[in-house]
Design a protein around this nucleic acid. Structure first.
Length: 142
DNA sequence: ATATTGACCAGTT
DNA sequence: TAACTGGCCAATA
C-alpha cells in the first residue's frame, strides 16, 4: 500500500482526465515495469478511499471492465464510466480507440515520470495494435 | 516463515 | 488457432 509503486499508480490514475481511460498495462509501462499490470489491478482493488482516485477510468487491454470492481462488479464500474460520459458496450467494454488517454510530454513531466516512459508507451501501443488487428482480419482461403 | 492468488499482459509453444 | 509460461508484488491463508 505504501510502496512507491502504489503511490505512483495513485498519481497516474488521478491524472486521467474525465471521459478518458487507461489500461493496466499502460500504467505499468509508464512506471517502467512493463509486466506489472496485474499488480496495478491489485493496487486499485485495495486503493485507500482517501485518495479519491477515479479507478473506473482503468480498464484492461481490450477495454474490458473489471469483474471484481468493488462490490458492484462490472455494473458498478459501468455506472461510474457512464457518469464520466464514457460509452459502455453491451459486453462491458469501452472503445479504446476513442476513449484511451495518451498523455503528452508535458503531462508526463507533471507526473514526474521519465520522458522515456512515453516513448516506451508509444512503441508498445503501436505494437499492441499490430497484434490485435490480425485477430480481426478475415481469414482468407485456407 | 512459505505458498497461493489475483481488477493483467506479452511472448512462446 | 488456442494453451501455456513467466513475470509483477500486496494481500491472504
Amino acid at each position: 500500500m505504501e510502496s512507491v509503486f502504489s503511490q505512483q499508480v495513485y498519481k497516474i490514475v488521478k491524472a486521467i482526465p474525465k471521459g478518458k481511460v487507461m489500461t493496466y498495462g499502460q500504467i505499468a509501462l509508464l512506471l517502467g515495469v512493463p509486466r506489472a499490470s496485474q499488480q496495478v489491478g491489485w493496487v486499485l482493488h485495495w486503493i485507500p478511499e482517501e485518495y479519491q482516485a477515479p479507478c473506473q477510468r482503468v480498464v484492461n487491454r481490450f477495454g474490458g471492465l473489471a469483474a471484481g470492481y468493488g462490490w458492484g462488479g462490472q455494473l458498478a464500474h459501468r455506472a461510474e464510466l457512464l457518469a464520466d460520459g464514457v460509452e459502455v458496450r453491451e459486453d462491458f467494454t469501452v472503445e479504446l480507440e476513442k476513449y484511451q488517454w495518451h498523455p503528452t510530454e508535458a503531462e508526463i513531466a507533471l507526473l514526474e515520470l521519465p520522458i522515456e516512459a512515453l516513448e516506451r508507451l508509444n512503441q508498445k501501443l503501436a505494437f499492441s495494435k499490430e497484434r490485435l488487428n490480425p485477430a480481426k482480419r478475415k481469414k482468407s482461403k485456407s
